[in-house]
Design a binder for these strands. Sequence first.
DNA 1: AAGCATATGAGACATGTGTCTCATGTCAAG
DNA 2: CTTGACATGAGACACATGTCTCATATGCTT
Lengths: 202, 202
Amino acid sequence: MKKAKVPSNQELRTRKDLLAAASRLMKQGRVPTMDEVAKEALVSRPTAYRYFHSIDALLNEAAVDEAVLISTQALDANTSTDPEERLLAAEAAMHRSCYENEAQLRVMLASSVNRDPSSKDVPARQNRRLPLIEAALAPARSRFKMADYQRLCAALCLVLGTESMIVFRDVLGVDEPTAREVKNWTIRTLVRGALAGTASET
Amino acid sequence: MKKAKVPSNQELRTRKDLLAAASRLMKQGRVPTMDEVAKEALVSRPTAYRYFHSIDALLNEAAVDEAVLISTQALDANTSTDPEERLLAAEAAMHRSCYENEAQLRVMLASSVNRDPSSKDVPARQNRRLPLIEAALAPARSRFKMADYQRLCAALCLVLGTESMIVFRDVLGVDEPTAREVKNWTIRTLVRGALAGTASET
DNA sequence: AAGCATATGAGACATGTGTCTCATGTCAAG
DNA sequence: CTTGACATGAGACACATGTCTCATATGCTT
């Protein structure tokens, strides 16, 4: 049993201030110091560390905090039931969000990637894309066989997130429109393949 | 014109010793300090910094140094001309290489991801996968239309490298066999889609 | 209003990074 | 053998991270 320790209003405010300060500083493109964030939040450095065990944890959470919203909004507005169309809408939203917050997402990715297996505070990697994908696929859910559906979701996760941006930029060095075009083609091809359900034989 | 500064034998030896020391320490799973690497290489810390502008640059290069080889070997041994079969062989080699050197590759990815746009030393991200993919596709090259071929190559780059491992592990939390299965399905589906060449219309 | 729990600040500490200076060593050519 | 170029080592520096201790101040309860 864990002691349920309810955070006081003051604590919530301080936490929020730190995240806001970090976001504000990250928007300037740089990667702020814990000192800088604390100062920006009108808080002392030890206090900042009381709320976030590491600068990475703070920046990580701030980045996520920034880039949340989007997502399912794009789907709520979309009344189609065609999985391709809905996925492309989701991809468009995700794509925008990724490229607009590239600096923050890079920080987050870097800090989550090199964690020791003996990690602790950083709250694991959270997953915005799978719910998004599932929401996009929901109206057509019954058209897929179970195994095909799960494979498709996993495969789409390779295409939809921050990592694909990294590959396009750092590995392939291609520009944004090209990246979008490749992602769209990939999404369409995978959906059609999963609907056909024929590619699972060796 | 750059002054061509030929490195002396001594310099080459020192550089090699540093990389070897870094590899040795990284093999123990931890992420070594510049001090540790220097000590392991029987060299002073300032000297280590004379060869690598940052600890990341050193670890990065050491990791790459480690995980090279593989690749096209897997294809040389494969006499098939079927693009699917050849790609699956390439994927198998790449997959093994990635998961065996996971710790080093994570370090490399982290250091290459959070570089400032104003970066310098880290020699950009090098690309092992595209040549591999092109080698796998070579015998069937003429069966693809140009645009389809390029899209396919880019899409496969999303599936084949370190980043997919990160997604499978950190985002989806799936085990290695599942990851392989998803990747194989994805590869097959994309190749068939590219051969059919029908998915590019909206 | 008084009192107590606790969130905070001030400041020091240990460690790692990256840079600098200056002295010493080593190697090769004269 | 001697000289000079150059790779190296010793040590200090400025700065960032993350953790302490201890004193203060804030906020909530009686």
